[in-house]
Simulated assay, not measured.
Amino acid sequence: MVRSINHRSPQSSDGRLGVRLTLSTVAVALFSVPFVLLLVLVMSSFAPLNDLDESVARHLHADALAHPGYARLLGIGTEVFGPTTWRVLVVLAAVWAWYRGARRLAVWAVVTITVSGLLNLAVKEVVNRARPVLPDPVSWAPGSSFPSGHAMAVATGTGILVLMLLPSLRRTAARIAAWAVAAVLIVFVAYTRVALGVHWLSDVIAGVALGVVVVAGITAGFETWRREEGRRPAEPYLEGVEPEAFRGKKSG
């Protein structure tokens, strides 16, 4: 019996999806201009960038030092919205999506948050940048400084959750609000890391940039795979990664 050359088994389809997720992540991460530029400047000890980092760090840290209650509030906020929180929320969202039948969406979410964490650790190891050393520190953090793990995690985590939520939001205003909340959380967490004196400004900018790159890259790979499978083309940042998810029928 002759098999159709257009037949695609679920196994081969999932395999191609995995390859595209990996290749998209690597490609976008390597060629993301803002992140790569900061990486080069940091590794070359570019004096103007170092001066800016030190000036901002000392200014924000002085404010935190002058207001102990404010510093404690920042410390609570930075931990509440830290990497562990986003990993737990994304995993819970993935479990929910899997239960609802959106299994590939669940895989996309787990792959994205996992790649983000591993990539952050890898870049930290390569750059090995020292954290700020300020008089009378109000906080402390272990490990290398560039890029900020907190900033990268909040950018990745909020991006994933909003993209999963969008199919359930019918009104444009609700979608805009979702992205606005994500942006506020990203700015807040990035601010706390610098104000508490545990990161340079360039660390948090790079962390946010790389987090966005990971989400965008893996989402682009997912959307390419969807189109190759004959599914309706989608605009992920308006409709979500899988627009048909959670709209009255299960998607496998």
Rank of each mutant, 00 (worst) to 15 (best):
L30C: 12
F35G: 09
D53Y: 07
L41P: 02
D53K: 03
L21F: 11
F31L: 14
L37M: 13
V36H: 12
V26Y: 03
S44H: 14
V33P: 08
V42P: 07
S24P: 00
T25L: 14
R20Y: 07
V36A: 15
V33K: 08
A27S: 14
L30N: 05
S32A: 07
A29D: 10
S45Y: 12
L38P: 10
L39H: 11
L21K: 00
L39C: 09
V42H: 04
T25C: 13
S32V: 03
L37C: 08
V33W: 15
V33G: 05
V33L: 15
V28C: 05
A27M: 11
F46Q: 01
N50P: 00
L41T: 04
S24Q: 00
L49Q: 04
S24C: 06
L23H: 03
S32G: 07
F46M: 02
N50W: 00
V33R: 10
R20C: 02
L30D: 04
P48F: 01
V33N: 04
N50Y: 00
S24I: 01
L37R: 12
L49N: 02
A29I: 11
T22I: 12
L23S: 08
S44E: 14
P34H: 14
V42E: 07
L30P: 05
A27L: 14
G18N: 03
P48K: 00
L38T: 11
L52W: 15
F35Y: 14
L23Y: 04
V28M: 09
D51T: 08
A29G: 06
L49A: 01
L38N: 10
F31W: 08
P48C: 01
V40H: 08
V28L: 13
P34R: 13
D53E: 08
M43T: 09
L30A: 15
V28Q: 02
S32N: 13
V19W: 10
T22Y: 04
L41E: 06
F35N: 09
V19I: 10
T25F: 15
L38M: 13
L21N: 00
V26E: 02
L23C: 05
A47M: 06
L30I: 09
V28T: 11
V28K: 01
G18F: 02
V36C: 02
T22W: 07
A27T: 14
G18T: 04
F31A: 07
A47P: 01
L21S: 04
L23M: 09
S45V: 12
R20M: 09
D51H: 07
L23R: 09
V19P: 01
V26H: 02
S24M: 01
L49T: 02
F31E: 04
L21D: 00
T22N: 01
R20N: 05
D51K: 01
L37T: 15
S32I: 03
P48T: 00
P34K: 13
D53I: 03
S44D: 14
L49S: 03
V26M: 10
T25D: 10
L52G: 05
L30R: 08
S24V: 02
V42T: 13
F31T: 13
S45H: 15
G18I: 00
F31K: 04
D53F: 04
S32E: 09
L38V: 09
V40D: 06
L30F: 13
A27Q: 06
G18L: 07
A47W: 02
F35K: 10
G18D: 01
L21G: 06
G18C: 03
V36Y: 14
V28W: 03
R20D: 05
V36S: 15
L39M: 10
L38H: 08
V42I: 11
V40L: 15
M43S: 12
V36P: 00
